[in-house]
Design a protein around this nucleic acid. Structure first.
Lengths: 219, 219
DNA sequence: GTCTATACGGTGATAGAC
DNA sequence: GTCTATCACCGTATAGAC
């Protein structure tokens, strides 16, 4: 009887429902990791956060490991959409694009307690769970390539005595990650705007002819 | 009878034995975290790595939580002894001292797979376990203060259009942490020497009058 | 001090009702 | 699809022998 009703519902609607449920459960997973940590996150804590039963989370994700991997991908996709949008919205000037990527990294949509906690939770288990490392590496590489491309495009403005385009790209990527660690371990230590300002100092140092404009824009 | 024998042994020897056992167990704890991750590390995996029984690890550390906290402190103390030694061995010149601190961060004694894995394992659980956050914050603050002090001492050499001493100190600390993340997530991506070289680019950019010397020393 | 044995609760995953 | 009930297992911590 119920089966018949479901068959009669349009396929689209069923798919949407499934997508909504998956999103709801992934959200609850993230919520649980933030609250209890990755090691104390269980199917029970996820189900509770979702307001659903334990059985249904397994129904949609098959195993806990798969659920966690999907949550990581989900978070990376959100991050990716932010930096891609920033890149597309920026002017064609490569230095402006570099600044746009930097700004995106400290956008409260991406750089907040919830996300910082989640990144570090997964990164902390990356060695022990190759699947996590694999997911991270793929997304990280993509973002690093985008930044590297802009650094190459701006290489004529670079202080060549000190920097290479690759070196600057790695330094910028690492500096923002390092500031994320700081903000994660001591949330009251560095504000988003302050982190942004510090990163801009590096950009200004690398592009001396643009230093003044970069620094006033970030202040 | 055995009690009598123990009473007769000098107190020093008993204390030494206890210290050795504790070290042995802490070492095994770290070994287990590196192998299996923090969330899969149990009293059983620690006991197995130590070649001891599960009961004895509880005997020395009372609880699993206390054991993990001690392991974290143990690692931080090792790190601290390395950077303090580097600082003491460096010449009085503040730029040389900054470089010494940077070099210490990429010393294979400190920056290797084992340690990187361990740092990130604990940092990943820091939000959920305030004790871990507290331990990290204390040691991190100490190290940050040492670096900041040298940046202040070198402030007359600083490119003041771009940097403040505080800003540079945070940037340097964050950059090295960020390079640690990179090396952790993709161990084949950046070598220790390469990470050192990149960090030196930042130091060189901040102290223009010393740039040439800094860069040739790091190459 | 070190071991083995065990109590007790929680965990991931499955089965089957609705 | 979603739930509840259940299983076999594993986790921490304790007790008590030696």
């Amino acid at each position: 009887m119920t089966t018949l009703l479901q068959e009669r519902r349009p396929r689209r609607e069923r798919a949407d429902n499934a997508a909504r449920r998956r999103a709801q459960i992934l959200d609850a997973t993230i919520e649980s990791i933030v609250r209890h940590g990755l090691s104390a996150t269980t199917l029970a804590t996820v189900a509770e956060a979702a307001g659903l039963s334990q059985g249904v989370t397994v129904f949609y994700f098959k195993s806990k490991q798969a659920l966690l991997a999907e949550a990581l991908r989900w978070q990376y996709e959100e991050y990716r959409s932010v930096w891609r949008a920033a890149l597309n919205a920026a002017p064609a000037d490569p230095v402006a694009r570099i600044l746009a990527l930097v700004r995106a990294d400290f956008d409260p949509a991406v750089c907040n307690r919830r996300m910082l906690t989640l990144w570090h939770a997964f990164w902390g288990e990356a060695t022990a769970r190759p699947l996590f490392a694999e997911i991270s590496e793929g997304f990280d590489r993509e973002r690093a390539a985008a930044l590297h491309q802009q650094c190459e495009a701006a290489s004529d403005l670079l202080d060549a005595k000190v920097w290479t385009p690759e070196g600057l790209a790695v330094a910028l990527d690492s500096l923002t990650d390092g500031l994320w660690i700081r903000m994660h371990l001591d949330p009251d230590g560095v504000e988003n705007a302050e982190a942004m300002r510090i990163t801009c100092c590096l950009v200004a140092a690398a592009f001396p002819s643009r230093a003044a404009a970069i620094l006033t824009a970030s202040a």
